Amino acid sequence: MPTIYDFSVTTLTGEQQSLAQYQGQVLVIVNVASQCVFTTQYVQLQALYERYRAQGLVILAFPCNQFGGQEPGSNTEIMQFCQLHFGVDFPIFAKIEVNGPNAEPLFRFLKQQQRGFLGSRRIKWNFTKFVIDKEGHVVKRFAPYRKIADLQPVIEKLLAAA
């Protein structure tokens, strides 16, 4: 059965990075945007990362400009914005598409593994969050409006698993 470890993604500097390097860690994979009503979730995502990173949590952010043009900046501008305004130090990758024919293969996989509201595979907006267990399986999908605190019980359970 495929896992997220079968995928490589593009870093902000344009290099390919295998997600296999995150084996044994709990992941939150999220599509983000700098000019979205949910952009303040960066604060909670960073707090979540700081609280659980020593226990093996990693947050992987993927900027996306498909929803209302809310991520117009370059990869460098996006990183600077996140660091300056929110103190983000979890990995942020190159800008991608999450829906349509040019969707990032990782996000096609995520959507197949965990459907959204009413069984939809399509990502509806920025800050859709996927929680991944230590074996690379997608265990839960959270809609953009869901608070970061809603992820906490799932993450704690996965971090405690052997």
Rank of each mutant, 00 (worst) to 15 (best):
D6P: 10
Q46M: 10
V37I: 14
Y22Q: 02
K129M: 07
Q41D: 13
R122T: 14
Q55S: 11
G68F: 04
A162E: 12
K157D: 14
P105M: 07
Y42W: 14
I148V: 15
Q80R: 15
Q35G: 08
L27G: 00
I148W: 02
P144E: 02
F90I: 13
C36I: 03
R146L: 12
S120V: 06
Q41F: 02
F117W: 11
Q66I: 02
G69D: 05
E50S: 15
D150Q: 12
E97Q: 08
G56Y: 00
P2H: 08
L57W: 01
V9L: 11
L45D: 11
K157R: 09
S34D: 03
N102Y: 07
Q80K: 12
C64P: 01
D6E: 15
E104F: 00
G87I: 13
A161T: 13
R146I: 05
T10W: 06
R122G: 06
V154L: 10
R53I: 08
L106A: 03
I29D: 00
A20H: 06
I92L: 12
D6A: 12
N126F: 01
N102W: 06
F90S: 08
Y52L: 12
Q35P: 06
F81V: 14
Y42F: 15
Q23F: 02
A54T: 10
K95T: 05
R51Q: 15
P91D: 13
Q114C: 15
Q114R: 15
E15D: 13
F67A: 01
Q17P: 02
Q16G: 09
V58G: 00
I78W: 00
P153K: 07
L106Y: 01
P105T: 04
Q113D: 10
L19M: 13
V138K: 01
Y22D: 03
S74L: 11
G119T: 08
K157Q: 14
T40A: 15
I155H: 08
V88W: 03
R108I: 14
V58P: 01
L84F: 11
E71S: 01
Q44H: 09
F142G: 04
V26F: 00
F81Y: 13
A47G: 09
D133S: 10
V32W: 00
I4F: 04
L151M: 12
Q55T: 04
T39W: 08
A149F: 05
N65A: 04
I59A: 03
N75W: 04
P144N: 04
Q112S: 14
D6S: 14
P2N: 09
L19V: 06
R53Q: 15
Y49R: 05
A143T: 07
G136R: 01
E50K: 14
A47L: 09
A20V: 06
A160V: 15
L84H: 12
Q41M: 07
F62H: 01
G136Q: 03
Q41E: 14
V26Y: 00
E15M: 08
L158P: 08
F7K: 04
G73L: 04
L57A: 05
D6F: 04
V131R: 00
G24K: 02
E71Q: 02
I29C: 00
R115K: 13
Q55N: 06
M1R: 13
N65H: 03
Q23L: 07
Q152C: 07
L45G: 11
Q41T: 10
F127A: 05
L118C: 12
Q70M: 01
G14Y: 10
G100L: 06
K111D: 05
